[in-house]
Write a protein that binds this DNA or RNA. Structure first.
Lengths: 195, 195
DNA sequence: TCGATTATAGCACGATCGTTCGATCTATTA
DNA sequence: TAATAGATCGAACGATCGTGCTATAATCGA
């Protein structure tokens, strides 16, 4: 990794921070340049276009997400313990540094009506997250912790929905109540998948 | 209702259409003026500021939502039939005119990091939707269709989550598969609440 | 140490934005 | 008909944005 990539990597970290408390659109070349203490043109040279910048921020966020949620959980035991850890990490990802918008939901909403590279990339990343979650549920079946005939795609949808619903609830109702409801609903799903 | 309010109402309808296929931020005074065939300053006079315009668009969307989802379903029988209709209307709301972003989720995401009148209003509206959904579930308990000791707040969270999760899934995986999974998961929840 | 590559800065451009202001057009009312 | 009020417009402002061009500063290989 040469110095250029290192610098870019550090810029992308700053950018991701901005996305998480300003949304995607607000991270302009101008605002990011100011944040990292560079000139607009100096920063521009790193990306060559706003679209490419957004693409790289998105990929950076996806890398970090894959690491913080999935890769890290590989250390825990296959099956249910790992699934629990993944879900726990997933939820806590949106509460570090005083919370912040989910970069993927933000990007999905803001680019929903703008077909192009960025929108495609978002769908790719969200699709991968869902697939990774699905895989970790499949493993629970393999380990005999979930019933053999479980429709794991549906189970994935149900758990993913609880997570996304939680993101909305956390901003609408009291934090503690919201997260308690999640825990109960999640455990009920687990129980249902187990018998 | 004088002609000014009628005109404003018609403008808000156009604005809501724009929100649903451009997102919230993209509906600027300039772009909305062009869409309705007015000058910027002419349109500006209707709202007096961009923030007030966004507030009024939001309120207009909430009015329409309350009517299209909840008020209309009052015609069906109290309890489960009405709940089913509400959920059906809710989902179909995002598929008329070839789909489109949910204005409330769009606003919530885009204004998440901008405290102020608009953000407060969004939380108000989302809170009201959830409360309305909760009420319709309470009625199912009153009617004896759901068990008496059902935690209806948790049930509300679970059904709301399935809906929000569906909005993401519709944009990520094949439409038919997504909506079939919703139907199955929703019916399972209903069954669980009934015994 | 010198030459080349690379990172960054400065400046200018056209576009778009929200907002203001004064003028004009329209419709109502006295 | 004349006066008035409300709706709309055109033009202009300062900001911000993405992007291109050119110059300078830093880094590194020979």
């Amino acid at each position: 990794m040469n110095s250029s990539t290192e610098r870019t990597h550090s810029i992308l970290n700053t950018a991701l921070g901005l996305v998480r408390n300003m949304g995607f659109e607000s991270v302009s070349i101008a605002s990011l340049a100011k944040e990292v203490g560079m000139s607009k043109s100096g920063l521009f040279a790193h990306f060559n276009s706003k679209e490419k910048m957004h693409l790289m921020i998105l990929d950076h966020a996806a890398d970090k997400f894959a690491h913080d949620i999935f890769r890290i959980s590989l250390k825990s035991k296959r099956g249910l313990p790992r699934l629990r850890l993944i879900v726990k990490n997933w939820l806590s990802w949106f509460q570090v540094n005083g919370g912040g918008t989910c970069p993927f939901l933000a990007a999905a909403v803001e680019y929903d009506s703008r077909p192009g590279l960025v929108k495609d990339r978002i769908q790719l990343h969200i699709g991968r997250m869902i697939k990774s979650l699905n895989r970790s549920i499949d493993i629970c079946v393999e380990e005999g912790e979930f019933v053999n005939d479980l429709d794991t795609k549906k189970a994935t949808y149900e758990i993913y929905s609880l997570i996304v619903g939680q993101l909305v609830y956390l901003r609408t109702i009291e934090h503690k109540t919201a997260s308690k409801m999640f825990k109960i609903s999640f455990e009920e799903l687990i129980n249902r998948y187990s018998v």
